[in-house]
Design a protein around this nucleic acid. Structure first.
Lengths: 362, 362
DNA sequence: CCCTAGCATGAATGCGCTTTCATTCTCTTC
DNA sequence: GAAGAGAATGAAAGCGCATTCATGCTAGGG
C-alpha cells in the first residue's frame, strides 16, 4: 500500500507526457491508438487508479450525487422491527436514486444525519458531490441554505419548504393528501360506509398530517361526520400500536366504526391481527385500510387495501431534477413535483384484488 | 451558482491567511477563539463550503468508504417482486455499512455494477474512496486486483476468493453451510424426521451451494438418505417457484417427504401458501423451513423456521475491517471472518416460537 | 518537392486545500 | 523589565489531475 502511482508514473513509464495520459482517460479518441495502448499497458502494470479527488479538483465536478436521510435506527432495538416503514422508505429511495444516478453516470454518496456521527458529516458530503438530495427535513435550514447557494439541492418528501430562504429549491413529494382522499372516497362512495375512524399521529410528520387532511376533506365532501383530529393518535405507528388501536376502537364506547383507516400499513397489519384474535372478520365486520403499500400489505390475509407510495420513483425523480440542473437549466425556476400515488383496492375493504389478479400464487 | 467561494475568499474577508482558515476547520483548537469566530462568520456570509476534492487531494484521504453491489433489478419488472431477497440483502448491507461508517466518521459511496451504467463506474468509485467493499463477485478479478493494490478492499459474502491474486484481501462471509447444517440436524435429531427434501439451486450461487452442503453433511452424519443434488432446483428461487416446488413434491411419485427445506425464505413462503391450498397442515402434515430470516418469515402463519443471516452485521464488519486497515494495521495478514448465523425455531417445524415470545402481538 | 491544414503531443498553469517550517505574539518567570 | 518558552499565525510548497496554448508531425494539394 505504498504511494499510489500517478499520472506522472504512468507517463514516464510509457514515454509520454502526463497530458497524454490524462487524455487517454478523458478523450481516448484524441490519442493515437498505438500511444493509447502503451499508456494503458503501463497503467495496468503499475496498478494505476486515477484519483477522483484530483480529477474532481481540476475539472470542478465529482460525478457523484448525494443523499441525506434521517437515521431512524435505534441501535438498541435494532432488529426489533426490521421492516420499520421509515427504513423501507430510505431503502427504496436509495435504490431509486442509485439506479437513476448510475444511468446518468453518477455514483451515489449517502449519509444519514442526526446523532451517531460527527456533526460535520453533512458538510463533508455536501463538499464532495455535484448535487444533493435531502430527505424530509434532515438538514438544518441554515446549513441547507448555504449549500444550496453552490450546488443544486432537491428536497424530497414533506411539504415544500416554507422557509423563504429555501424556496428556490426543487422539491418532490408524494400526493399524500390526495391518496388518502381517494381511499376515503372509495370507502364512502363505493362501499357506502359512513362511520370511519382515522388512526395516525398528525403532529409530527407533515406527510401523516397531509393524509389526515385528505381524510377530512373526503368526509366533509361526502357529508360524513369527521372530527378535527384523528380518532386515535399513536406516536410510533408500529404494528403493536395498530393492534392496540384496533382493540381500543372495538371496546370503546358507542357504536364500533365501520372502517379503520390507518396512517400506515404497519398499524393496519397489527389491527388485522388484533381483529382476528377478537373473532372479527375483515372486511365483513369491519373494514381496514393502510397507507404506503409496503410488500407485506399484499401478503397479509386479507390483503390490505392501501395507498401505494412510489418511493423508488421519488428517488429517480430527484436524480432527474439534479441532473437537469447540472446540465444546462441551472437558473430555471424551481420545480415542485407531486408524484401521484396509486390506490390498491384489495380484500380488506371488500374489493377483489384488482392489482394482482395475475399472480394467482398469493 | 457562480464561482463558489474558496479559502482565499474567506481568508481575505476575515483578514487572515488561508492556513488559518484551514486550521479553523481541521483543528479548531489551534486557533484563537476570536480569530476563529471571525473566520466562521466570514465563511457563513460567503456561503463557503469546503471542497471535498481539494481537501482529499491535499490530505490524501477522502473520508469515504465505497460499496459495490450487484444490480439485480430488472427495470422491466420493477415492483413485481418488491421484496426480492437479493435486494433485501443489498439494502441491509448498505444500512449496516452506512451506520458503521458514520460512527467512524465516514460517508458511504455506493454503486451497483454490471449493466445499466458506464463501465468505468467502478473505477470512478474506487478512485474516490479510502476503502472499498465488494459484494459477491461484483467486480472483475483483474480490476479488483489493481484496486486492492492501493486501497483496502474487503470482499463480502460468497466464499473466500480462490484467485491467488486476491488472497490478500480481507473477507467476510456468513456461515451458510453451518446454518443449514444446524437446521437440518434440528429436524433430524429434535423432530426425528427422516425423509427430507432440499429445494434450491446449487449451481449459480456459492452461498446456496454451501447451504446444500450443510444439508448433505447433516443427513450423512445422521444416517439419513441424501442425494448429491437438491431434490428440486428452482432457478429464480421466487415465491412462485416455492409454491410450484411444493406442488411437485406433494404430487410426485413415492412417499411425500416429511420436510421441505428451502434454500431461501421466499420459496418457503410460497410453499406455505401452496400447501394451505392443498389442505395440508404445517407442521403437522409436513414441515417447511427457509433460509435468510427476512422480516416476512416471522409474519407468515405458521411462522417460518429459518436461519437468520446477519446482513446488517456483515456490512458493519466490512466497515470495521476497512477502518482497521485504514488506521494502522495496513500490512497485517488478511482476515477471513465467518459470521455465525442464528437458528430461528418457529412454528413451521413444530417448535414454539423461541425467539419472539415477548412480542405477543404477532 | 514545398507549403499548409489539421492532428497528435508536450509544457505549463491552476483547481482549493493541507501541511511543514519559519516567524511573530503573548505570556510567564526571575 | 528582560529573556525565554510556547502559542498563534503566515509563507510556500505541493497533492494529482484537466486544460489551454504552443509546437512538432503527418498528409494532402499544388
Amino acid at each position: 500500500m505504498n504511494a499510489a502511482p500517478t499520472v506522472y508514473d504512468v507517463a514516464e513509464r510509457s514515454g509520454v507526457s502526463i497530458a497524454t495520459v490524462s487524455r487517454v482517460y478523458r478523450s481516448p479518441d484524441s490519442v493515437r491508438a498505438a500511444t493509447r495502448e502503451r499508456v494503458l499497458a503501463a497503467a495496468r502494470e503499475l496498478g494505476y487508479v486515477p484519483s477522483g479527488n484530483a480529477r474532481g479538483l481540476a475539472s470542478r465536478s465529482t460525478g457523484v450525487l448525494g443523499l441525506c436521510f434521517p437515521d431512524y435506527s435505534d441501535p438498541d432495538t435494532v432488529g426489533a422491527e426490521d421492516d420499520d416503514a421509515a427504513m423501507l422508505y430510505s431503502d427504496q429511495i436509495i435504490r431509486g436514486m442509485e439506479r437513476a444516478a448510475r444511468r446518468h453516470g453518477y455514483a451515489l454518496l449517502i449519509a444519514a444525519s442526526l446523532e451517531g456521527g460527527p456533526e460535520n458529516l453533512v458538510a463533508k458530503v455536501a463538499g464532495r458531490v455535484d448535487g444533493f438530495a435531502v430527505l424530509a427535513r434532515t438538514v438544518p435550514t441554515e446549513e441547507l441554505e448555504v449549500i444550496s447557494r453552490r450546488r443544486p439541492v432537491v428536497m424530497l418528501a414533506g411539504p415544500r419548504a416554507q422557509d423563504p430562504s429555501l424556496d428556490h429549491l426543487d422539491h418532490v413529494e408524494v400526493a399524500n393528501e390526495d391518496g388518502q382522499y381517494q381511499l376515503t372516497r372509495h370507502l364512502l362512495d363505493d362501499h357506502g360506509l359512513r362511520r370511519l375512524a382515522y388512526v395516525g399521529f398528525a403532529e409530527d410528520s407533515p406527510d401523516v398530517e397531509a393524509r389526515f387532511r385528505g381524510f377530512q376533506r373526503a368526509c366533509r365532501e361526502a357529508g360524513a361526520e369527521v372530527g378535527d383530529r384523528p380518532a386515535l393518535r399513536m406516536p410510533m405507528m408500529t404494528r403493536a400500536e395498530g393492534a392496540h388501536a384496533a382493540d381500543l376502537l372495538c371496546s370503546g364506547p358507542g357504536e364500533r366504526p365501520e372502517a379503520f383507516l390507518f396512517a400506515n400499513d404497519q398499524m393496519a397489519v397489527g389491527a388485522l391481527q388484533a381483529l382476528e384474535r377478537r373473532g372479527l372478520r375483515v372486511p365483513d365486520d369491519v373494514v381496514v385500510t393502510g397507507f404506503d403499500g409496503i410488500p407485506l400489505s399484499r401478503l397479509v390475509r386479507p390483503a390490505l387495501t392501501t395507498v401505494r407510495q412510489p418511493m423508488v420513483r421519488l428517488g429517480e425523480k430527484a436524480v432527474e431534477l439534479l441532473v437537469r440542473r447540472l446540465t444546462g437549466e441551472r437558473e430555471a425556476d424551481p420545480v415542485s413535483l407531486m408524484l401521484p400515488v396509486g390506490l390498491a383496492r384489495r380484500a380488506s375493504c371488500g374489493c377483489a384484488d384488482e392489482e394482482n389478479t395475475a399472480s394467482a400464487d398469493i
